[in-house]
Amino acid sequence: MSTASLNIPLRRSAQRSTAEPALIRWTLVGVAVLFLALFLFLPLAAVFGQAFERGVGAYFAALRDPDAWSAIRLTLLTAGIVVPLNMVFGVAMAWAVAKFEFRGKSVLITLIDLPFAVSPVISGLIYVLLFGLQGWFGPWLLEHNIRIMYAVPAIVLATAFVTCPLVARELIPLMQAQGTEEEEAAVVLGARGWQTFFRVTLPNIKWGLLYGVILCNARAMGEFGAVSVVSGHIRGLTNTMTLHVEILYNEYNFVGAFAVASLLTFLALVTLGAKSLVGWKPGRRADKSSAEAAQDNPPAPPEAGVRAGTA
Protein backbone atom coordinates (compact mmCIF):
# COMPACT_ATOMS: atom_id res chain seq x y z
CA MET A 1 0.00 0.00 0.00
CA SER A 2 1.59 3.21 -1.10
CA THR A 3 1.62 6.07 1.37
CA ALA A 4 0.13 8.33 -1.25
CA SER A 5 -3.21 6.57 -0.87
CA LEU A 6 -3.36 7.30 2.84
CA ASN A 7 -5.22 10.41 2.13
CA ILE A 8 -5.53 12.56 5.18
CA PRO A 9 -6.56 15.94 3.83
CA LEU A 10 -4.81 19.03 5.08
CA ARG A 11 -6.41 22.25 6.13
CA ARG A 12 -5.98 25.55 4.43
CA SER A 13 -2.94 26.63 6.37
CA ALA A 14 -0.62 23.85 5.29
CA GLN A 15 0.17 23.99 1.62
CA ARG A 16 1.20 21.00 -0.46
CA SER A 17 4.77 22.14 -0.67
CA THR A 18 5.25 22.39 3.05
CA ALA A 19 3.19 19.48 4.32
CA GLU A 20 4.46 16.47 6.16
CA PRO A 21 4.63 13.18 4.34
CA ALA A 22 1.44 11.19 4.62
CA LEU A 23 3.07 8.57 6.82
CA ILE A 24 3.91 11.15 9.44
CA ARG A 25 0.43 12.56 9.29
CA TRP A 26 -1.12 9.17 9.66
CA THR A 27 1.10 8.37 12.60
CA LEU A 28 0.34 11.62 14.36
CA VAL A 29 -3.39 11.22 13.96
CA GLY A 30 -3.05 7.68 15.22
CA VAL A 31 -1.09 8.73 18.26
CA ALA A 32 -3.53 11.52 19.04
CA VAL A 33 -6.56 9.30 18.70
CA LEU A 34 -4.96 6.55 20.76
CA PHE A 35 -4.07 8.99 23.50
CA LEU A 36 -7.56 10.44 23.56
CA ALA A 37 -9.08 6.98 23.48
CA LEU A 38 -7.09 5.92 26.49
CA PHE A 39 -7.82 8.99 28.52
CA LEU A 40 -11.08 10.29 27.19
CA PHE A 41 -13.25 7.92 25.21
CA LEU A 42 -12.71 4.87 27.37
CA PRO A 43 -13.78 6.52 30.61
CA LEU A 44 -16.82 7.88 28.83
CA ALA A 45 -17.69 4.46 27.50
CA ALA A 46 -16.99 2.89 30.87
CA VAL A 47 -19.60 5.02 32.59
CA PHE A 48 -22.36 3.94 30.32
CA GLY A 49 -21.02 0.44 29.94
CA GLN A 50 -21.00 -0.20 33.66
CA ALA A 51 -24.33 1.51 34.19
CA PHE A 52 -26.07 -0.82 31.77
CA GLU A 53 -24.08 -3.92 32.62
CA ARG A 54 -27.02 -5.60 34.23
CA GLY A 55 -29.44 -4.36 31.66
CA VAL A 56 -31.79 -1.48 31.25
CA GLY A 57 -34.08 -2.63 33.99
CA ALA A 58 -31.43 -2.61 36.66
CA TYR A 59 -30.38 0.81 35.42
CA PHE A 60 -33.74 2.41 35.96
CA ALA A 61 -34.25 0.56 39.23
CA ALA A 62 -31.05 2.07 40.51
CA LEU A 63 -32.28 5.52 39.56
CA ARG A 64 -35.58 4.96 41.28
CA ASP A 65 -33.88 4.20 44.56
CA PRO A 66 -35.13 6.69 47.18
CA ASP A 67 -31.68 7.62 48.37
CA ALA A 68 -30.63 8.26 44.81
CA TRP A 69 -33.69 10.44 44.40
CA SER A 70 -33.00 12.55 47.45
CA ALA A 71 -29.43 12.95 46.24
CA ILE A 72 -30.75 14.16 42.91
CA ARG A 73 -33.15 16.50 44.66
CA LEU A 74 -30.44 17.93 46.86
CA THR A 75 -28.16 18.45 43.88
CA LEU A 76 -30.91 20.24 41.99
CA LEU A 77 -31.69 22.39 45.01
CA THR A 78 -28.06 23.37 45.44
CA ALA A 79 -27.69 24.22 41.79
CA GLY A 80 -30.97 26.09 41.88
CA ILE A 81 -29.62 28.39 44.58
CA VAL A 82 -26.00 28.64 43.52
CA VAL A 83 -26.40 29.19 39.80
CA PRO A 84 -28.74 32.21 39.92
CA LEU A 85 -26.61 33.83 42.63
CA ASN A 86 -23.41 33.30 40.72
CA MET A 87 -25.09 34.53 37.56
CA VAL A 88 -26.06 37.80 39.19
CA PHE A 89 -22.58 38.07 40.65
CA GLY A 90 -21.02 37.38 37.26
CA VAL A 91 -23.15 39.96 35.51
CA ALA A 92 -22.53 42.59 38.17
CA MET A 93 -18.79 41.98 38.17
CA ALA A 94 -18.58 41.97 34.38
CA TRP A 95 -20.58 45.21 34.18
CA ALA A 96 -18.34 46.99 36.67
CA VAL A 97 -15.15 45.71 35.10
CA ALA A 98 -16.01 46.05 31.42
CA LYS A 99 -17.81 49.38 31.36
CA PHE A 100 -15.84 51.43 33.86
CA GLU A 101 -12.29 52.33 34.77
CA PHE A 102 -11.27 52.30 38.39
CA ARG A 103 -8.22 51.76 40.50
CA GLY A 104 -7.43 48.18 41.34
CA LYS A 105 -9.39 46.79 38.42
CA SER A 106 -6.66 44.46 37.21
CA VAL A 107 -6.10 43.19 40.74
CA LEU A 108 -9.80 42.45 40.99
CA ILE A 109 -9.81 40.58 37.70
CA THR A 110 -6.96 38.39 38.92
CA LEU A 111 -8.67 37.85 42.27
CA ILE A 112 -11.77 36.49 40.60
CA ASP A 113 -9.74 33.45 39.56
CA LEU A 114 -8.86 32.62 43.18
CA PRO A 115 -11.34 29.77 43.59
CA PHE A 116 -9.71 28.02 40.64
CA ALA A 117 -6.36 28.05 42.34
CA VAL A 118 -7.70 26.45 45.48
CA SER A 119 -7.99 22.70 45.86
CA PRO A 120 -11.61 21.58 46.34
CA VAL A 121 -10.82 20.10 49.73
CA ILE A 122 -9.46 23.43 50.89
CA SER A 123 -12.58 25.12 49.53
CA GLY A 124 -14.56 23.03 51.97
CA LEU A 125 -12.04 23.40 54.75
CA ILE A 126 -12.39 27.17 54.88
CA TYR A 127 -16.08 26.87 55.63
CA VAL A 128 -15.43 24.30 58.31
CA LEU A 129 -13.07 26.79 59.88
CA LEU A 130 -15.85 29.32 59.91
CA PHE A 131 -18.91 27.33 60.76
CA GLY A 132 -17.67 24.02 62.17
CA LEU A 133 -17.89 23.18 65.87
CA GLN A 134 -14.45 24.55 66.49
CA GLY A 135 -14.93 27.27 63.92
CA TRP A 136 -15.22 31.00 64.51
CA PHE A 137 -18.98 31.00 64.51
CA GLY A 138 -19.32 27.43 65.72
CA PRO A 139 -20.31 28.10 69.32
CA TRP A 140 -22.61 30.97 68.35
CA LEU A 141 -24.41 28.81 65.81
CA LEU A 142 -24.76 26.00 68.32
CA GLU A 143 -26.26 28.38 70.81
CA HIS A 144 -28.83 29.62 68.37
CA ASN A 145 -29.49 26.16 67.08
CA ILE A 146 -28.63 27.06 63.50
CA ARG A 147 -27.23 24.25 61.41
CA ILE A 148 -24.88 25.30 58.70
CA MET A 149 -22.06 22.80 58.73
CA TYR A 150 -22.80 19.23 57.68
CA ALA A 151 -26.10 20.41 56.30
CA VAL A 152 -27.51 21.93 53.17
CA PRO A 153 -26.37 25.54 53.81
CA ALA A 154 -22.73 24.49 53.93
CA ILE A 155 -23.12 22.51 50.75
CA VAL A 156 -24.58 25.56 49.05
CA LEU A 157 -21.78 27.80 50.29
CA ALA A 158 -18.98 25.46 49.29
CA THR A 159 -20.50 24.95 45.86
CA ALA A 160 -20.94 28.69 45.42
CA PHE A 161 -17.28 29.20 46.27
CA VAL A 162 -16.03 26.74 43.72
CA THR A 163 -18.21 27.93 40.86
CA CYS A 164 -18.44 31.68 41.38
CA PRO A 165 -15.85 32.77 38.81
CA LEU A 166 -17.42 30.85 35.95
CA VAL A 167 -20.07 33.26 34.69
CA ALA A 168 -17.85 36.29 35.33
CA ARG A 169 -14.95 34.78 33.38
CA GLU A 170 -17.23 34.09 30.47
CA LEU A 171 -18.75 37.58 30.41
CA ILE A 172 -15.80 39.82 31.15
CA PRO A 173 -13.83 39.31 27.92
CA LEU A 174 -17.06 39.36 25.93
CA MET A 175 -18.25 42.64 27.38
CA GLN A 176 -14.82 44.17 27.17
CA ALA A 177 -14.66 43.34 23.48
CA GLN A 178 -18.07 44.92 22.94
CA GLY A 179 -17.00 48.21 24.42
CA THR A 180 -19.18 50.97 25.80
CA GLU A 181 -20.33 52.82 22.70
CA GLU A 182 -23.80 51.31 22.49
CA GLU A 183 -24.42 52.00 26.16
CA GLU A 184 -23.21 55.58 25.74
CA ALA A 185 -25.52 56.00 22.78
CA ALA A 186 -28.38 54.67 24.88
CA VAL A 187 -27.83 57.08 27.76
CA VAL A 188 -27.50 60.04 25.40
CA LEU A 189 -30.88 59.04 23.99
CA GLY A 190 -32.27 59.23 27.50
CA ALA A 191 -32.23 55.63 28.69
CA ARG A 192 -31.88 55.14 32.42
CA GLY A 193 -29.86 52.44 34.22
CA TRP A 194 -31.97 49.30 34.00
CA GLN A 195 -33.30 50.25 30.58
CA THR A 196 -29.80 50.47 29.22
CA PHE A 197 -28.87 47.12 30.68
CA PHE A 198 -31.93 45.17 29.61
CA ARG A 199 -32.50 46.74 26.20
CA VAL A 200 -28.94 47.23 25.00
CA THR A 201 -26.39 45.15 26.93
CA LEU A 202 -28.26 41.98 27.74
CA PRO A 203 -29.24 41.11 24.15
CA ASN A 204 -25.62 41.49 23.15
CA ILE A 205 -24.31 39.10 25.79
CA LYS A 206 -27.10 36.57 25.83
CA TRP A 207 -25.19 33.65 24.32
CA GLY A 208 -22.13 34.15 26.47
CA LEU A 209 -24.35 34.42 29.51
CA LEU A 210 -26.26 31.30 28.57
CA TYR A 211 -23.10 29.29 28.15
CA GLY A 212 -21.69 30.62 31.41
CA VAL A 213 -24.85 29.57 33.22
CA ILE A 214 -24.83 26.12 31.67
CA LEU A 215 -21.19 25.61 32.61
CA CYS A 216 -21.77 26.93 36.12
CA ASN A 217 -24.67 24.55 36.49
CA ALA A 218 -22.68 21.54 35.33
CA ARG A 219 -19.83 22.30 37.70
CA ALA A 220 -22.15 23.02 40.58
CA MET A 221 -23.92 19.74 40.17
CA GLY A 222 -20.66 17.87 39.72
CA GLU A 223 -18.73 19.32 42.64
CA PHE A 224 -17.27 16.62 44.84
CA GLY A 225 -14.23 17.50 46.93
CA ALA A 226 -15.54 20.66 48.58
CA VAL A 227 -18.93 19.19 49.23
CA SER A 228 -17.39 16.02 50.60
CA VAL A 229 -15.70 18.02 53.32
CA VAL A 230 -18.74 20.00 54.47
CA SER A 231 -21.45 17.46 54.03
CA GLY A 232 -22.47 15.15 56.84
CA HIS A 233 -22.57 12.24 54.40
CA ILE A 234 -25.92 11.37 55.79
CA ARG A 235 -27.60 9.12 53.31
CA GLY A 236 -30.82 10.50 52.02
CA LEU A 237 -30.26 13.86 53.69
CA THR A 238 -26.97 15.53 53.03
CA ASN A 239 -25.66 13.63 50.06
CA THR A 240 -25.45 15.19 46.67
CA MET A 241 -25.29 13.03 43.58
CA THR A 242 -21.53 12.90 43.53
CA LEU A 243 -21.35 11.91 47.17
CA HIS A 244 -23.98 9.29 46.57
CA VAL A 245 -21.93 7.90 43.71
CA GLU A 246 -18.98 7.60 46.07
CA ILE A 247 -21.00 5.75 48.65
CA LEU A 248 -22.47 3.31 46.16
CA TYR A 249 -19.08 2.66 44.61
CA ASN A 250 -17.46 1.97 47.95
CA GLU A 251 -20.21 -0.53 48.63
CA TYR A 252 -19.39 -2.26 45.35
CA ASN A 253 -22.81 -1.32 44.00
CA PHE A 254 -21.33 -0.56 40.63
CA VAL A 255 -24.52 -0.47 38.64
CA GLY A 256 -26.03 1.96 41.11
CA ALA A 257 -22.97 4.13 41.22
CA PHE A 258 -22.58 4.30 37.46
CA ALA A 259 -26.28 4.80 36.93
CA VAL A 260 -26.21 8.03 38.92
CA ALA A 261 -22.85 8.86 37.37
CA SER A 262 -24.38 8.45 33.93
CA LEU A 263 -26.85 11.23 34.68
CA LEU A 264 -23.99 13.55 35.53
CA THR A 265 -22.08 12.41 32.47
CA PHE A 266 -25.08 13.15 30.34
CA LEU A 267 -25.18 16.63 31.82
CA ALA A 268 -21.48 17.07 31.00
CA LEU A 269 -22.12 16.04 27.40
CA VAL A 270 -25.00 18.51 27.15
CA THR A 271 -22.64 21.20 28.44
CA LEU A 272 -20.09 20.32 25.80
CA GLY A 273 -22.81 20.41 23.17
CA ALA A 274 -23.91 23.83 24.37
CA LYS A 275 -20.36 25.06 24.10
CA SER A 276 -20.11 23.93 20.49
CA LEU A 277 -23.45 25.44 19.65
CA VAL A 278 -22.70 28.74 21.27
CA GLY A 279 -19.28 28.77 19.65
CA TRP A 280 -20.86 28.48 16.21
CA LYS A 281 -23.76 30.76 16.96
CA PRO A 282 -23.67 33.66 14.53
CA GLY A 283 -24.93 35.93 17.25
CA ARG A 284 -22.04 35.18 19.52
CA ARG A 285 -19.45 35.38 16.82
CA ALA A 286 -21.01 38.60 15.67
CA ASP A 287 -20.98 39.92 19.23
CA LYS A 288 -17.24 39.63 19.29
CA SER A 289 -16.45 40.32 15.68
CA SER A 290 -18.77 43.21 15.06
CA ALA A 291 -16.95 45.03 17.80
CA GLU A 292 -14.11 45.09 15.32
CA ALA A 293 -16.37 45.40 12.30
CA ALA A 294 -17.37 48.86 13.45
CA GLN A 295 -13.96 49.95 12.25
CA ASP A 296 -14.60 48.60 8.81
CA ASN A 297 -15.06 50.85 5.87
CA PRO A 298 -17.68 49.32 3.58
CA PRO A 299 -17.68 51.50 0.51
CA ALA A 300 -21.06 51.89 -1.14
CA PRO A 301 -22.93 54.85 -2.57
CA PRO A 302 -25.85 56.00 -0.45
CA GLU A 303 -28.43 55.01 -3.03
CA ALA A 304 -27.15 51.47 -3.52
CA GLY A 305 -29.27 48.55 -2.46
CA VAL A 306 -28.73 46.63 0.71
CA ARG A 307 -25.42 44.85 1.02
CA ALA A 308 -25.16 41.26 2.18
CA GLY A 309 -24.61 41.08 5.90
CA THR A 310 -21.56 39.76 7.64
CA ALA A 311 -23.60 37.92 10.27
Binding site: A185, V188, G190, A191, R199, N204
Partner: peptide, 29 residues
Protein backbone atom coordinates in the same frame (compact mmCIF):
# COMPACT_ATOMS: atom_id res chain seq x y z
CA UNK B 1 -26.66 64.10 33.66
CA UNK B 2 -26.44 62.97 30.05
CA UNK B 3 -29.97 61.65 29.99
CA UNK B 4 -31.30 65.04 31.05
CA UNK B 5 -29.49 67.17 28.54
CA UNK B 6 -31.66 66.33 25.55
CA UNK B 7 -28.78 66.45 23.11
CA UNK B 8 -28.51 64.33 20.00
CA UNK B 9 -25.13 62.63 19.59
CA UNK B 10 -23.86 60.89 16.49
CA UNK B 11 -20.84 58.68 17.17
CA UNK B 12 -17.91 58.24 14.85
CA UNK B 13 -18.47 54.52 14.58
CA UNK B 14 -22.24 54.88 14.61
CA UNK B 15 -22.81 52.90 17.85
CA UNK B 16 -25.99 51.43 16.41
CA UNK B 17 -27.66 48.78 18.56
CA UNK B 18 -26.55 45.74 16.63
CA UNK B 19 -29.30 43.43 17.70
CA UNK B 20 -32.10 45.86 16.84
CA UNK B 21 -33.55 46.63 13.42
CA UNK B 22 -33.16 50.05 11.87
CA UNK B 23 -36.68 50.88 12.96
CA UNK B 24 -36.05 49.83 16.57
CA UNK B 25 -32.80 51.76 16.63
CA UNK B 26 -34.50 54.97 15.61
CA UNK B 27 -37.45 54.37 17.93
CA UNK B 28 -35.23 53.66 20.94
CA UNK B 29 -35.05 57.18 22.31
Amino acid sequence: RVQERRVGFVFQHYALFRHMTVFDNVAFG
